[in-house]
C-alpha cells in the first residue's frame, strides 16, 4: 500500500490539481510554486547521485578492478571540485563584513580555475567533436540505401547549397520567372512547405503522445517508474 498505491495517489492528486490550475485562476500560482519545489528536490537529489558516483568509484578502486586508476582520477577531481566549490576557496567577497557572500565562481577562485581550465575546455572540445561526427554522418547518408534516405540526403544537399553563396551562383542563370527552380528557391519551398508540414505533424503527434502518457500516469495504468510492491 505505502510502497506503490500511496505514491500513485500522490501522482493522481497532484496531477489533477495541476490540470485544474490551468482553468482556475486562483490556483495558477501553484504551478510556479511546484516548479520551485522541483528545483529544490532536484538539488537535494544531487546528494543521491553524488553518493552513488562516490560509492561506485570507491568500490572499483578498492576491488582494483580494471581501470581503477581512472576511477581514482574521477574521484579525486570530484572531491576537489566539491570541496573548493562548497567552501568558496579563493573567493574574495565585495563586502569584507560578509566573506561568504562573494560569487562562488568569482575570477581567481579555485572553482573558477577549474571551470576555466578544465571544465570549459573539456566540454567545449567534446562539443566541437560534433563537426567531425556530422561529417561522418553525412558520409553515411551519401550511401543512401533506399528512397527515404535519398530524399533526406537530397533535401539536406539543397538546403545546404540554398543557404550559401555557392547555391545562388550555381543557379544564377535561371530566369526570374522560374526562381523556384534555383537553390535558394527550392530551399524556401523545402523550409516553407515540407519542413513546416513535417514539424507541425510531429508536434501534434507528440502533444497527443504526451497527453496520453500523462493520463496513463495519472490513472495509474503505467506505474513502472514506481517499481514493484516488493522492497
Amino acid at each position: 500500500m505505502l510502497k506503490s498505491t500511496f505514491p500513485w495517489l500522490i501522482v493522481a492528486v497532484t496531477g489533477c490539481v495541476m490540470i485544474a490550475a490551468f482553468f482556475v485562476p486562483p490556483l495558477a500560482e501553484w504551478k510556479n510554486e511546484a516548479g520551485a519545489w522541483f528545483e529544490i528536490l532536484a538539488a537535494m537529489a544531487f546528494v543521491v547521485g553524488g553518493a552513488n558516483l562516490f560509492a561506485q568509484h570507491l568500490k572499483k578502486i578498492s576491488a582494483r578492478r580494471a581501470g581503477w586508476g581512472y576511477s581514482a582520477v574521477t574521484l579525486f577531481s570530484f572531491v576537489v571540485t566539491l570541496v573548493v566549490g562548497l567552501f568558496k576557496v579563493g573567493v574574495i567577497g565585495e563586502d569584507p563584513n560578509y566573506p561568504w557572500a562573494g560569487h562562488y565562481q568569482a575570477e581567481g577562485s579555485a572553482l573558477w580555475w577549474l571551470y576555466q581550465f578544465a571544465y570549459q575546455p573539456l566540454i567545449g572540445t567534446m562539443f566541437a567533436l560534433l563537426a567531425f561526427y556530422v561529417a561522418s554522418a553525412a558520409f553515411r547518408a551519401f550511401r543512401a540505401k533506399n528512397t527515404e534516405a535519398t530524399m533526406l540526403l537530397t533535401a539536406a544537399f539543397i538546403v545546404l547549397l540554398g543557404r550559401t553563396y555557392a547555391g545562388t551562383w550555381l543557379t544564377s542563370a535561371v530566369p526570374d520567372d522560374y526562381s523556384a527552380l534555383t537553390f535558394p528557391g527550392m530551399t524556401a519551398i523545402i523550409l516553407g512547405v515540407f519542413n513546416t508540414a513535417g514539424q507541425r505533424a510531429i508536434m501534434i503527434g507528440i502533444a497527443l503522445g504526451v497527453a496520453a502518457t500523462s493520463l496513463k500516469v495519472l490513472l495509474g495504468v503505467d506505474r513502472s517508474y514506481l517499481g514493484s510492491d516488493g522492497d
Binding site: L75, S77, F78, T81, L122, M126
Partner: peptide, 8 residues
C-alpha cells in the same frame, strides 16, 4: 570531465 562536472 566526469568528476569535475558532477561536482560542479
Amino acid at each position: 570531465m566526469v568528476g569535475v562536472s558532477a561536482a560542479w
